[in-house]
Design a protein around this nucleic acid. Structure first.
Lengths: 355, 355
DNA sequence: AGTCATTGCACCATCGATTGTGCAAAAAAA
DNA sequence: TTTTTTTGCACAATCGATGGTGCAATGACT
């Protein structure tokens, strides 16, 4: 170890060692040295000193001076969910490929927490913020705007900056249609056999419900109002809804549309207390894809949102010039039961294994 | 908006507005003002100015001066997996409760990337680093050590600082035992019917394999060497292993132990191409818990690592004085088939729903 | 040899907050 | 009233990197 094991080397240390000024060292190490007409040999010397002393720039200092940090933030509702975690995974890869540092934080769908978290990130001078699934995107916008921070909405739209979201209407429609068509012609679904559980009063849920209703009306010719049960994005609330339904009718609906895999976990909690027989003749549609859920012991039709597409689009838009406040719809994909799709992890190689 | 909408207010702005010096403003706003004997009324004035001008401290500046940032890092192998995402979720809650800002980053199980990422985090002067599931914990240690950064290992142990990990031997043992016992006495498992797939050459896998062998030897009286197939932590490699096995024998083993839910996804990929009949008389054990996987159409016995316990323990240890280099084992829990456990998300309330 | 352009770098202010030190004014003690 | 103590704050250095500006030394050219 060239270093006693303690304090990090600074440009001042290298300046002394190399006999050059700090500004010269700085220029060499941040790449602007040609512009400053530093001699190649000087640069070489400094570079080698930096190498042997394991110099790395203090980014707080750099960020303070340049009011940029190299950090790009992703504000998430929660981590512990395959949809959001695959967003995080994909986001990281994109940010890394631009040579910046991703920083992913969750705010629990709490508008207050969202704003506070954005404030915090801003206080670290992050360069851009991707606001994903925020309960109050425009609230977060306010604080970004006040700080002059570039930002964009994902998953749930705001009205102040561009948004990249799933085509939830279309997704809801095709999912509903797929549920309906999954029943055999000789035992077709009645309008009152098909329910929607989950979601809250947000743009995504509203659009999905619109798609749900449109498909029901078109294919089943009816759409009783009581067929929509919002439960919030919480597994246990969904479980309670299933319990209540079961309590009332002695069975579950033959088909239902579950809004988000978080709510589908509520179905698992229900299942745990009921014999598998109760789930014969059941078809579930879930808006969100989870590979394990796709193989449950009854047909589960899922919607996989195009995470890669959304992230890629969001980067295009945020990078692009003067983006107009517009909602960019990204088509989601219908996933038939028993389907194992690849995900962002498949792009990684296992450095421990041959090939 | 009191602010034109652009640059953030600084202590210098407030200093001018209040007629006090920047240092007074600073002291008032960071809480050290009593120590500096600032008059209550002065403090009050400054606080109200800060309020109306929406002052927030520039943490890069603060961090530069104090060489602390208020950031606490979690280095993860990947995001897109329920085990790691629940770790992230739990970690965030802990860090938040200490008034700091969590920053979660993944490094893809690549030793190079791990060190680079640690370097990057260090360059932002993070205050502590939790190194989770690192392929080369001691490598990361080196860079932390050189920067004088407090750190600790989770999930996979290193030899230079304390580690908090699952009791993988015991977990592997009880999981194996549960698989064996799940078969009825009249059609018991033979030693060559029970395989282990997945994992790589890391501490966790080795320990689990040790537990696997121990249980087999004890309960089945045998343990052929070819019953262990490491595949790395990649779904597709696991699928290939299943394919290969199936190719050779025309069936899957009656029972198997899958190391990590990532590899269990490989089983899904295999399943997608085979009729469900092939999975009769099959019992799977998986080291890791995923709620959906627990309800697959054949018995899946899972191990849930005690994420909350590990994180809590890790914070205790890292906060504690002069922790000795020691491995702290946290007992994991056996989860029978068809079990829906609650997770970190259940601690959140849905602000959009009543109650 | 004298003028001018180019090269190669040093100097210094700056980003925003923190903190040790110093000192005038007010209050208390003598 | 004078001396001492306390109060309340201002000053200035500092953290590490950046980038505008200035200037000596060298080379090119007449």
């Amino acid at each position: 170890m060239t270093n006693g094991g303690r304090k990090k080397a600074t440009i001042y240390d290298l300046s002394v060692l190399s006999g050059s000024s700090p500004s010269t060292v700085s220029a060499v190490l941040n790449g602007t040295w040609r512009k400053r007409r530093i001699r190649e040999s000087t640069a070489e010397l400094i570079r080698s000193l930096a190498e042997t002393h394991q110099y790395t720039a203090n980014r707080q200092a750099r960020g303070l001076r340049s009011s940029r940090s190299g950090l790009v933030g992703l504000l998430l509702p929660v981590h512990d969910n395959r949809y959001f975690s695959s967003l995080a995974q994909t986001f990281e890869a994109h940010v890394r490929s631009k040579g910046q540092c991703p920083i992913v934080v969750s705010a629990s769908r709490d508008p207050e927490e969202e704003r506070r978290t954005a404030e915090t990130l801003i206080s670290y001078s992050i360069d851009e913020l991707f606001i994903c699934g925020a309960t109050d995107p425009d609230g977060v916008h306010e604080v970004c705007e006040a700080a002059g921070l570039k930002h964009i909405n994902i998953d749930l739209p705001g009205t102040k900056v561009p948004s990249v979201i799933s085509d939830n209407f279309e997704g809801g429609r095709i999912l509903t249609e797929a549920i309906i068509r999954h029943f055999p012609a000789d035992r077709p679904l009645a309008p009152e056999d098909l329910y929607l559980f989950g979601g809250r009063d947000d743009h995504a849920t509203r659009e999905r419900i619109r798609g749900f209703r449109a498909a029901k009306k078109e294919l089943l010719g009816g759409d009783p109002d009581e067929c929509v049960w919002p439960t919030g994005y919480a597994a246990d609330n969904a479980r309670k809804a299933f319990d209540a339904f079961y309590e009332q009718r002695g069975k579950l609906p033959r088909g239902f549309f579950v809004n988000s895999s978080i709510n589908l976990e509520g179905l698992l909690r229900f299942m745990a207390e009921h014999p598998l027989e109760n789930f014969k003749d059941l078809v579930v549609g879930c808006y969100d894809y989870d590979p394990f859920a796709s193989f449950l012991p009854f047909p589960v039709i899922m919607i996989r949102q195009d995470v890669e597409g959304m992230i890629a689009r969001a980067f295009e838009v945020i990078e692009g010039p003067r983006a107009s406040v517009q909602i960019h719809l990204v088509k989601p994909r219908l996933v038939p039961p028993r389907t194992a799709l690849t995900g962002p992890l498949d792009a990684l190689i296992d450095s421990d294994m041959p090939r």
